[in-house]
Amino acid sequence: MTQPAPHPRPTAETWALARADFLSGLSAAVVAERHGISERQIRRRAAKEGWRRSDFEPMGMAPTPAWMKPPPTAAEERANDDALEEVDEAEAAARFGLLFEPKPRSLRRYAFRRASESAAMDRPQVAVSWMRLVQLIDRCGERIDEEAHPYREADYVRAAYLRRLNEQYGEDGDPDLNPDTAPTG
């Protein structure tokens, strides 16, 4: 049996010409035949050195199926639906009220609403923690109302001090300390 004659080792000049032909858009088979290099050698060199033909357009990956996409963020949801901005504003107002005017009844409503939302969003552990807060408010909510003071202890001390100052110096006629004798506009 006769074996095909081995291809002579291509020179650097031959590789440069082969590369130029390949990059111009010729197929590897045509470049191999033209320059006397095996098609396999052309493909290996092209892969190794990153040759890309001029007509090559990389195929992108297939789009991600909807079931694999992550859920949209809150900002994306707000951008898609203007009504959500109104909901966010109402939620911020509710939190503001809870922070600066805490009332057991409003806190209970807020906690129950959050528990319901968490349960609906399939987050049972979060829902349970909010329901514990609801139960705690039910047990001690009235006592909180009875014991609650609208001001801090320091504010009461400050008010008592100002009252003493007013009693002590207000009778001497100092108009700055006695609001009854202060000049009106």
Rank of each mutant, 00 (worst) to 15 (best):
Val126Trp: 00
Arg114Asp: 08
Glu167Gln: 14
Glu49Arg: 12
Leu17Gln: 08
Arg44Gly: 01
Ala120Leu: 15
Arg114Trp: 00
Met61Cys: 04
Pro179Lys: 12
Ala160Ile: 06
Leu99Val: 12
Gln3Ala: 09
Ala148Lys: 06
Gly36Ile: 08
Ser129Cys: 07
Ala29Cys: 05
Asp138Pro: 02
Met59Leu: 15
Glu142Asn: 09
Ala29Ile: 07
Glu49Pro: 06
Gly25Met: 07
Val30Glu: 08
Ala46Arg: 03
Ala16Trp: 03
Ser27Val: 08
Glu89Phe: 08
Gly170Asn: 07
Asp55Gly: 11
Ala62Pro: 03
Ala111Leu: 05
Thr181Tyr: 09
Pro4Leu: 08
Leu136Gln: 03
Glu85Trp: 15
Gly36Asp: 05
Gln41Glu: 07
Glu101Gln: 13
Leu84Val: 03
Pro124Gly: 09
Ala160Glu: 15
Ser24Tyr: 05
Glu101Asn: 14
Thr11Val: 06
Glu86Gln: 06
Glu153Asn: 13
Arg44Gln: 11
Pro6Ser: 12
Ser54Asp: 04
Gln135Ala: 15
Glu89Cys: 07
Ile42Trp: 01
Glu49Ile: 09
Gly60Phe: 03
Gly25Cys: 10
Asp138His: 08
Arg53Leu: 07
Asn178Phe: 00
Tyr156Gly: 10
Ala5Cys: 08
Gln41Phe: 01
Met1Asp: 07
Pro124His: 05
Arg44Val: 13
Ala20Leu: 12
Phe112Ala: 11
Leu133Asn: 03
Leu17Cys: 08
Lys48Ser: 09
Ser54His: 04
Trp15Thr: 06
Ala127Tyr: 01
Ser129Val: 04
Pro150Ala: 13
Val157Asn: 10
Arg139Ala: 13
Ile37Asp: 01
Ala46Ile: 02
Tyr161Val: 14
Asp55Arg: 09
Tyr110Val: 03
Met61Ser: 00
Leu99Asp: 11
Gly97Phe: 02
Glu57Asp: 10
Ser54Thr: 05
Pro8Met: 11
Ala66Glu: 10
Arg95Met: 11
Arg164His: 10
Arg158Trp: 11
Ala111Tyr: 00
Glu39Pro: 02
Asp172Ser: 14
Glu171Ser: 15
Ala66Pro: 03
Thr184Tyr: 06
Pro70Glu: 03
Ala94Gly: 06
Asp176Glu: 14
Val157Pro: 02
Phe22Lys: 00
Arg109Pro: 00
Leu17Ser: 06
Leu17Pro: 00
Cys140Val: 02
Ala111Trp: 00
Thr73Cys: 01
Arg163Met: 12
Asp82Pro: 02
Arg78Ser: 10
Asn178Ile: 01
Tyr151Leu: 15
Glu91Asn: 10
Arg109His: 14
Thr2Gly: 07
